[in-house]
Design a protein around this nucleic acid. Structure first.
Length: 561
DNA sequence: GCCGTTTTCGGCCCGACTGTTTTCAGTCG
């Protein structure tokens, strides 16, 4: 069992205990163990069991729970408490904005036991009767439920990726036995690398069409049902898969049709005529267009660009020369600064690492006060001697406070090579307030990069609303780079605004926001959406070589003197 | 339930903000 699963189990246990009004200190202790387990730099399953209760925050009681989980995959205490809680109440824990205390009142006082009932009660104005609830809270809960319902059956790209690739392998192995020379490919949102996937589309071009269709439902990893024009399956988790089987000769045209969004497909086919087409490139060429990469087929402005041969050369993962905006054990990261740097240098072959631990306001994340900033800089200087020519840049993720100011005085800010400014608190703002707050941060001469501009968590929380154009224009005017936060849950700045930013001359940066060594791999997801946005390597800050980025930071610093 | 003792019991514990209060509780990152 992974640490993450153990951590989640402990969190669920602590939340349920809170719903059942158990000893608050006991609850706190379990919740604390959840945080600790989540941040361990080693796998618990590799640890000798007698050493588990030596871990800080884990005593005899929690060690025995963890051992039970590792050995049986279950936790009796959790099963028992789940038995005593209506399933709908457990589900409510996933609604953003209400915690166990409010859920406890919803359940025990209002006798509401499912999300559906809760939504109904909001509409009937019944929540405001309960103590601690008012109109605003009721509205907040209603919005959060709507957001959650809209996310049903939808998944993040990263959640789908492993499943999709396994399925593809299984399907290939199965198919080769029935139709040796069949063609197959992903289509739809997955092939377009959309940040959210509603369903997984796969196209098979069969030489022996009837044989494949006849046998399709015998493909055991999925429970496929034959529909009008395809086979459909839904996984236990509610993920939909559509499998299209077509004649091999029609494969490329169908693959094309099922990949682009409807607007794109229609426009291209209007130009291309009826074929026949040898492959996808042929379709675009007969339409008089340059080839359009799948990620771009969103009916945005890609057809116009292709018409005039103005499509950007899309950035690739291999173009990245360094990684900016990452955390270490100095704040809430799992691995040390040296481990993070060595990973970049030796595993990823990068030239530099930008370390951006949290600033002092983020107390919950061990944010750095002024003395610790100085301490970290000393460590960076020493490591830079040791790891040269690899370079660690002195960065900080400075909180944007409610009034838009940054978290340190200018005297401290000027000691950094670069500053990522991001919002972490007070996320409920209207557009005017949020925009004004960000504008002030962008205008701060020490701000180098605007971090995750909207604070959104895909499928889980909408970001605060901002006036994108004003924000991007201000970044252009103040030479501020905008982050593409590569965490698959964020992917913020949204790719739909990359083009506008690039038109205005704003640089983008694919930042993993890594809190552990494996976190750097998220840059892959950042690259996928950057490609959707039309980013080319020369407009991406962390595709700059060490020399180029050094010069960039220096010139930005010179501007404010 | 954990921790740390002046060792077997008592203390544990971030700050800002919001919405609900009329002095504070719940939630968040």
């Amino acid at each position: 069992m992974e640490n993450k699963t153990i951590a989640r189990t402990l969190r669920l246990l602590s939340q349920l205990m809170e719903l059942h009004n158990e000893n608050p200190f006991k609850i706190k202790s379990i919740a604390n163990a959840y945080f600790k387990v989540d941040k361990l730099p080693f796998a618990l399953r590799d640890k000798p069991i007698e050493e588990i209760d030596q871990i800080e925050g884990i005593g005899k009681g929690l060690a025995s729970k963890i051992i039970e989980l590792l050995q049986t995959g279950e936790l009796k205490e959790l099963e028992d408490i789940i038995q005593k809680t209506p399933a709908g109440v457990v589900e409510m824990l996933a609604i953003k904005g209400i915690g166990p205390k409010k859920i406890s009142i919803i359940w025990h006082t209002l006798h509401i036991e499912s999300i559906g009932e809760l939504y109904y009660a909001c509409n009937e104005n019944r929540l405001i009767e309960a103590k601690g609830f008012g109109l605003k809270t009721q509205e907040e809960i209603k919005n959060a439920i709507e957001f959650k319902l809209a996310a049903n059956g939808r998944f993040l790209y990263a959640q789908v990726e492993g499943f999709a690739s396994t399925l593809f392998t299984q399907l290939s192995a199965w198919l080769v036995k029935i139709d040796h020379d069949a063609l197959m490919g992903f289509a739809g949102q997955y092939r377009r690398a959309c940040e959210i996937i509603d369903e997984l589309d796969i196209v098979i071009g069969a030489e022996h069409l009837e044989a494949v269709i006849e046998n399709m439902t015998s493909f055991s990893p999925l429970s496929l049902i034959q529909a009008e024009d395809c086979f459909i399956a839904t996984t236990e988790a509610g993920f939909r898969i559509r499998l299209y089987v077509v004649e091999k000769t029609a494969f490329y045209l169908e693959w094309f049709k099922l990949t682009g969004n409807p607007g794109h497909v229609k426009k291209v086919l209007n130009l291309a005529g009826n074929g026949p087409f040898m492959n996808e490139r042929d379709i675009y060429s007969q339409a008089g267009l340059a080839f359009i990469e799948p990620e771009l087929r969103e009916d945005f402005d890609e057809i116009e660009l292709a018409k005039h041969n103005n499509l950007p050369t899309l950035i690739q993962y291999e173009d990245l020369k360094g990684s900016l905006h990452n955390h270490s054990t100095w704040s809430d990261g799992v691995h040390t600064l040296e481990q993070m740097a060595l990973y970049c240098k030796e595993q990823l072959n990068l030239q530099y690492l930008g370390i951006c631990d949290h600033s002092k306001t983020a107390v919950y994340a061990k944010g750095l006060n002024e003395q610790r900033v100085f301490g970290q800089h000393q460590e960076i200087d020493a490591l830079n001697q040791k790891l040269a020519p690899f370079k660690i840049f002195k960065g900080i993720e400075s909180d944007i406070l409610s009034d838009g100011s940054l978290d340190y005085s200018d005297d401290i800010l000027k000691t950094f090579d670069f500053v990522v400014a991001s919002v972490h608190s007070n996320l409920r703002m209207d557009e005017a307030k949020a925009t004004a707050r960000l504008l002030k941060a962008i205008e701060n001469p020490y701000t180098t990069i605007l971090g995750h501009p909207t604070g959104r968590l895909l499928l889980s929380r909408a970001g605060y609303p901002i006036d994108y154009k004003k924000i991007i224009d201000a970044c252009a005017a103040n030479q501020v780079v905008i982050e593409i936060n590569a965490n698959p849950l964020r992917l913020d700045l949204d790719w739909r605004w990359h083009r506008y930013a690039l038109e205005k001359g704003v640089l983008l940066s694919v930042n993993p926001d890594a809190h552990r060594m494996e976190g750097f791999n998220d840059m892959q997801y950042g690259i996928l959406v950057a490609r959707k946005g039309g980013l080319s390597a020369d407009k991406c800050l962390n595709a700059f070589t060490l020399d180029q980025i050094n010069e960039y930071f220096e010139s930005k610093k010179a501007r404010k003197l």
